[in-house]
Amino acid sequence: MDILIAVINVLIFLTLAPLFEGVVRKLYAKVQSRMGPPIIQPYYDLLKLLGKETLSAGNWAFRIAPMMALASIITAVSLMPLGYTPGFLTQYGDIITVIYLLTLGGVSVLLGALSSKNTYAMVGASREMVTIIMVEPVLAMTFILGALKAKSLAIDAGMMSSLNGSYGISMVLMLVVFLMALQAFVARQPFDIAEAEVEIMEGPFIEYSGPGLALFKYYMMIKQMFYAALFVAVFVPLIYTGYYVVDVAVQLVEILMVFVLISLLGSTNPRLRIDQAVKYYAVLIAVSLVAVGLTAYGI
């Protein structure tokens, strides 16, 4: 049963991530008074790219980077207790493992960018690394907050701390910080600095085409959904019925709402420069440190 849940978990993410991406694109278009592509366009894009020719930079690092990125996010997803139901694999990792796995995904993007030799890709890689360094602490502290309440670093205990216990001022503070960092987690405006389509031509992905690009795009979609699901699980514990199907369905609806929020924020904000963003992140880190400090004193 546990193994089945882990598999279903991964399957939900693999099948629904492009759909949510489609929702985001549709909403972007609506805000900008365009028709927009059909909601299932991302599926078509992925399938089409898988069949296209691969233009390669001619080294193995360039080849394995997209596969590493996808593999690391799938591994992270397989540990996640969607619908507050821990799967078989949840016990085999703790929050530190999840944080490192998410970082590994970012590192794969960097590896791809650096091995493509392209100057624009390297500009993107430099920005991506800076973003990882500055945003990861916020993610880490979200987990740690839960861990401190649950007195355990286990993934399910940490993520379900607000479901099982009190909410508290520290949790509210962390919620605000997480929302402010959300666009940076999912690499959307105003923090799509590393990709920046019109400025550095999708940065790290500039040299990628065909299946490599498809895998990277897929990775980005699943990553977005992961952060949305994380937000929902940690901060919005609406109901817990104990029926797996119902709980998952409720969380998926909540995830959809998060994506609506992402689209609205993204489509109405201009991109920041990296030096502006870094100062913004520094404030977020400081505030989340305060939140963790408050939790440690039980507030």
Binding site: L47, L49, L50, G51, K52, E53, T54, L55, S56, A57, G58, P66, M67, M68, L70, A71, S72, I74, T75, S78, G210, P211, G212, A214, L215, Y218
Partner: peptide, 19 residues
Amino acid sequence: AFAFAAFLRRAGGSKEREV
């Protein structure tokens, strides 16, 4: 997961060319 990604990469029969 890596094997799955590798499978996806080959699934479309894409040819590789160095540029």
